[in-house]
Design a binder for these strands. Sequence first.
DNA 1: TATGAAATTCCCTAAAC
DNA 2: GTTTAGGGAATTTCATA
Lengths: 170, 170
Amino acid sequence: MANRVLPLDDFDHRLLGLLQRDASATLATLGDAIGLSPSAVQRRIARYRRHGLLRQVAVLDPAAFPATTLAAVLVTMERDTLRLHTAFRARMRAAPEVQQCYAIAGEWDYLVLLAAGSVTHYRQVAERLFVDEGNVKRYETRMVFDVVKHGLELPTGASPRRRARRSGPA
Amino acid sequence: MANRVLPLDDFDHRLLGLLQRDASATLATLGDAIGLSPSAVQRRIARYRRHGLLRQVAVLDPAAFPATTLAAVLVTMERDTLRLHTAFRARMRAAPEVQQCYAIAGEWDYLVLLAAGSVTHYRQVAERLFVDEGNVKRYETRMVFDVVKHGLELPTGASPRRRARRSGPA
DNA sequence: TATGAAATTCCCTAAAC
DNA sequence: GTTTAGGGAATTTCATA
């Protein structure tokens, strides 16, 4: 279903930028913002969806859920076999407490962001995900004290205004 | 505008769980899933919005943007003054390339997730955010090789099915 | 106070151009 | 790509427990 790169023009870039910030805007509003008719906007968004480029979700304000325990976990695997890594990744994707999981460069193999309902809940989850399944060599938990910024926006190429070119003064 | 804790019942928990996964579902669909009329669902969602509890966004598939460079950056500040930290946080919130920023426990002060359009772009941003402003003592970049999981879901208390109580067998 | 059902309005969607 | 027409969904109103 998810196809190859799917060519995107400047309208797409700006539209995706807007949608990443507010997906509840109407097609007319979006169209006005980028200079396109509502229908054209609708057709483009439908195409994004068809290609699996977007999904619409609600993002909750963490501050509104004081009990929520967030943690960043650095993980190193026992051995570097594809089999082990595949299993680990599947486990991460399956666990509802795992918000994000990244394979990273350097001394650690993975960075995992966990969201649990309490510190107790976090410990149970970490035990289950990183200890019980004997694939993890070592993991370090960094508890999150404060969420300074919270989002998943990707640079689309031209989000808010045209990116300035670094040359002489205009 | 964002108020105090705003009491949430079990309908809310389940509704928020659904919305976090798919905010494009119709009110009727959501209502069927949790056993409430479309009107009731609509009122509750309106209340969430009014209290700043949620925002609806489109999440892009990082795999569809091969040029995108993701990086996890660990940061330690020069000195532990409130003034410095406040300035740093404001900078993180203002920078469009900063997806997320967390204050964390341990040897590092912050974990920053950056999304740039290219490696070159990343280096420019890191230079600007962590070097030019002389508040950062040290920072380490962990480039992201692969996005295993991608989301911001918080546990609401009863998302898909009732969370099982850890006691004897049923 | 919050619900469900009905009425209204608005928006999304699918044409035709 | 835009304009038009139709169906559907979001929103408001209202009676009610």
